[in-house]
Amino acid sequence: MQANFSVYRKEPGAGSKAGRSTYTVELPEDATVIDALLKIRDEQDPTLGFRGSCLHGYCGDCTVRINGKAGFSCAVKVAPLAAKGGEIAVEPIRNMPVIKDLISDWDTFLWDKIDVIKPWLEPNGAASLDGEELIDDKVMAKVRQAMSCFYCGLCDEGCTVLPVDFKFVGPAALTKASRFLCDPRDHATAERLRILERPKGMWDCVHCFEASEHCPREIAPTERIIEMRDMAFKHGITNEKVARHHHSFANSVRNSGWLDEGRLAIESEGLTNIKGLMKLLPTAAKAVARGKAPIPFLHHKRPGADKIARIIEKAEAKEK
């Protein structure tokens, strides 16, 4: 089988310009993309840079974009792509600075972020060297699922927040945090949630579910992020804009049966957050000028508000 590749190229260093190299390779029928890359490097172009360790989907080292879709170059077969004709495009994964060619910088991408979330167990004392702790297998299923993460980076690759804000801690690090949050042997839950509550933490996720879509191990990072936010509410750790927004939203519907938009805006920013409140002023002024300002003290109960309050009460009782 003959296949044509167009591979992203970039020399290390800030000033270097990106480009592409094209190669034609003769490959066995069952070859994968990394077989092609290895063959190119060994026989045609020894300067081609890419990563790849185990070569069979265990280590997550060889993640790249192939024809625009991120995956492991060791697990994607060339034949169906070559059959379509044209060139097979191989590029580095998104959301990560490129060091050289297909090699990305994991330090800023993942390691620095994982460091932030306190990635170790703070045992509650039950586990000891002398005897093993009795653990119910079922309770641990969630921890185990998270532990099967092998840092392939696909969830962060798919993340829709990272392209906008690279400092967002990202789904991979948040999954790691979730692993400790759902471990019954850990006693640092509140401390962890306070770390995650900080700016660029769990509240910056926009739950687009791309992370869960991308995860090859079905770890469901997005669902885990939603769960840790619920956990934060349960622990009363809600001093964050999005959390305050949630709170205000629920309170408004509970008290008046509908949304008090003015109060929502003010409470989301926080009553003591002068800077944030000042930012609301121009919008508020414009709204007043057009006669559309939602004035909090003019907000009134809507008819049937009591019924709505009872629905909320029932739902909350069920949760508990």
Binding site: L129, E133, M147
Partner: peptide, 11 residues
């Protein structure tokens, strides 16, 4: 056992 005290979970 020490590994479990550090966070590992065996079946």
């Amino acid at each position: 056992r020490e590994l479990e005290a550090w966070g590992a979970v065996f079946d």
